[in-house]
C-alpha cells in the first residue's frame, strides 16, 4: 500500500465515522468491578461501547425510562455497543455486581 492510499484510507474511516449521522463513539470500560468513566456526556445519535477488562464476566443493562437494554454478559476483552437515540439521562448497571453503576447524559 502506498502512502497516499493509507492517508486516503484513514481519511475515509474518519469521514465514515463522523459521517455516520454525525455520530461519535465512546468507550466505557468495566474494570475492578467498576465502570470507568462513572459519568459520560454524549449527544443524541452517539454510540457507547462497553468493554469488559476484568478476568470475569460482567453484564451491562439499563432499565431507565429513556432506554432499556440488556447486553447479556461477556468476558474480558469483549465489548458490545449501544446507540442512544433520545435525549435524557440513562443509568447503566451491571446486574451481577449491583455496586457497578454509571450515568450517561444524552444531550
Amino acid at each position: 500500500m502506498t502512502f497516499d492510499k493509507i492517508v486516503f484510507g484513514i481519511a475515509l474511516v474518519a469521514l465514515l465515522a463522523a459521517g455516520a449521522a454525525n455520530a461519535a463513539e465512546y468507550e466505557v470500560v468495566q474494570k475492578n468491578k467498576a465502570f470507568s468513566p462513572k459519568e459520560l456526556n454524549i449527544k443524541v445519535g452517539d454510540t457507547v461501547k462497553f468493554t469488559n477488562e476484568d478476568n470475569f464476566f460482567h453484564n451491562v443493562f439499563s432499565l431507565s425510562d429513556l432506554k432499556t437494554f440488556d447486553l447479556g454478559s461477556y468476558p474480558k476483552g469483549e465489548f458490545k455497543s449501544v446507540t442512544f437515540d433520545k435525549a435524557g439521562k440513562v443509568e447503566v448497571e451491571c446486574a451481577i455486581h449491583p455496586s457497578m453503576l454509571m450515568i450517561i447524559n444524552v444531550q
Binding site: E27, V29, S36
Partner: peptide, 16 residues
C-alpha cells in the same frame, strides 16, 4: 467531537 473522543480515548487508555 473527534477531539473529545481522542481525549477520552487517551484517558481511558491511561486508566487501563
Amino acid at each position: 467531537k473527534l477531539a473529545r473522543n481522542l481525549l477520552l480515548a487517551s484517558v481511558v487508555a491511561l486508566g487501563a
